[in-house]
Design a protein around this nucleic acid. Structure first.
Lengths: 349, 349
DNA sequence: TTGAAAGCGCTAACAA
DNA sequence: TTGTTAGCGCTTTCAA
């Protein structure tokens, strides 16, 4: 620190980070000894290790990840593609995935594919980085691309999206059962006219929830709910709600594909149509994101527990990475109906 | 496609991605010709280029980023560290940064440092990956660490955080002026008792906003506002609001360090204390995040425009990366008071 | 315009 | 336990 003419400076080329070779020279050992010191489980004597660490510290040496992964053919990087970062549902999951991946020794290469942007170029990039795996955390990431990755030998797991057609492993909440439970709940509440606000219709998340919802009415010989389509953006959810509520016979029970859409619908119902939520109209969401518990929304919803979702994703990822020929799994993480006051509460709930 | 015994298979080692050498063999050219074909601006004849691209496509070849950056010493990776992913303020910025970085040819290595976790190990990782730059997007990422990165020769830019002490370039909203404007606005509204809910007190964001807020009262010989501390988490904001509102002489004008805290405070004021927002109590936030425009909140706030914030960050990053000895800049992106109904609106606003 | 050859910084045999 | 050596897959001189 006090040294101005530090000999360590001379021993490495100006401006560049120190290399294992620089460290070896300063420590008076071979370069492989340096490598071994930084490889867990490698055999180095205490003496050597000490000298190396000493020198490494002086030179602020850190093994270059680029170089090591060139040799080991493992990047320890996982690609993470997300679209709807603004949906409160994703941040907690990303946070948990990030932590779990970090603990497993992996880093995240992030791809935010805003809206309708083509994911193709991003995918190409991912492959260039030789990512060890790919996590697709979005309802609207098309799976042909994922498929291509898989064919390139990159393990892929989809989160909150499921495509039985493609051979992509996936983790999702219980969309079907959730939709059914909500239908049963609303029906038990004695509503008259049922409505559904979808998300992007090609997303399994939306179609599964809707299918579950509709199946209940089907099974009970009731008329199908009316529906309006959103693209998962708040404004679009509001528009869908306006659409439905402007009808001559507007629904008095509204299931929205996720909490975000449900809250958007609540805004419209409350402030544009003057409806009292939970009384004049029942609104139910899906996800149980943070905001839904706030008194202003007090949203009845079906939970998709972020912790379990992330944990299952990690477990599945581990299996997929272990052996490429693992049978394709589609994991469903159970959730439950979270009853709050945004929808009429029937007896027994 | 129809070929089963594709000769291309034989020309590359099983299971591994094709290398430039594989492509060269198949195309009947030298390996450097392959490299040149994939290097913009390199000189290759049309004929060679064609043969190479042909072969590359057959082998699904993509240049390994690991290998090239080993040689070029540029990773084209930018580290992005975020803490409060749940704060609606960050996602739009991350989205914009991500897009801008992508266009500039950079990828993002994401580090989510949940809450109080030590950022040190993550930093170490970043350096191992030889990231070309580092973006710290969080109010509570300590700057000694950033400093260390900078010393390691990695350009660092902080977003929504500023530390004049450390020599770290930064981009932030106009916290000071925002705080002042809000004070002036509330004072013009003829309030009696002023309160402030802070964030993590060590964050410049919080202290600057509070300083601006307080300075107004100071300058006008008015008593200092009462204050309560939050840690930027909603529950903590709610607790702070409870604290303030339980006083015998509760504030009738409350400035919260950001929109998230303001909304949390609104929930408490409205649902626990039965106050009518904008009438019994005025609440003002900071950021102008998406939710604040929703009728249920209709939050008066001071904007921090994500687009400009991201653009300035990119511009600054460019300058910092260009030459390490650039004078340290602290960029302040102007915002403006967004008047809604959560606070009494004085004449002239 | 092309190919040969020398590395980039590391890991992993292989010998010693 | 150590050092020597040969690459990993690329870029980049340098000659041809």
């Amino acid at each position: 620190m006090a040294d101005t003419k530090d000999p360590t400076i001379a021993s490495r080329r100006q401006g560049r980070p120190a290399t294992a070779y620089d460290v070896a020279r300063l420590a008076g050992v071979s370069q492989s000894a340096v490598s071994r010191t930084f490889t867990v489980g490698a055999s180095v004597s205490e003496g050597t290790r000490f000298k190396v660490l000493e020198a490494a510290q002086q030179l602020k040496y850190r093994p270059s990840h680029m170089a090591s992964s060139l040799k080991t053919r493992r990047s320890y990087i996982v690609g993470l593609a997300v679209t709807h970062l603004d949906n409160q549902f994703y941040p907690p999951i990303i946070e948990k995935l990030s932590e779990a991946l970090r603990q497993a020794g992996y880093r995240i290469l992030l791809f935010v594919t805003h809206g309708d942007t083509n994911f193709d170029p991003a995918l190409d990039e991912l492959l260039r980085y030789r990512v060890d795996a790919l996590i697709l955390a979005s309802t609207s990431l098309s799976s042909p691309l994922a498929q291509e990755c898989r064919e390139a030998g990159v393990p892929v797991v989809m989160v909150n999206n499921i495509d039985p057609e493609s051979a992509i492993a996936s983790v999702a909440g219980d969309n079907r059962k959730g939709g059914e439970s909500i239908a049963a709940f609303l029906h038990a509440g004695g509503h008259e006219r049922y409505g559904f606000i979808s998300g992007v219709e090609s997303s399994s998340t939306s179609s599964e929830r809707e299918a579950g919802f509709n199946s209940f009415f089907n099974d009970h010989g009731l008329p199908q709910p009316v529906r309006a389509v959103s693209n998962y953006r708040p404004e679009s959810g509001m528009a869908a709600a306006r659409n439905l509520l402007s009808s001559k016979t507007p629904p008095d029970a509204l299931f929205c594909v996720n909490d975000q859409m449900a809250m958007a619908a609540m805004e419209v119902a409350r402030h544009e149509f003057g409806l009292r939520i939970g009384q004049d109209i029942s609104i139910v969401g899906f996800d149980d994101t943070g905001l839904s518990a706030w008194p202003s929304f007090s949203l009845t919803t079906y939970s998709q527990p972020a912790v379990q979702l992330a944990a299952s994703t990690m477990a599945l990822l581990g299996r997929v990475m272990e052996q490429a020929d693992t049978p394709i799994e589609h994991i469903i993480v159970p959730g439950q109906l979270i009853v709050r006051t945004s929808a009429r509460i029937p007896e027994g709930y």
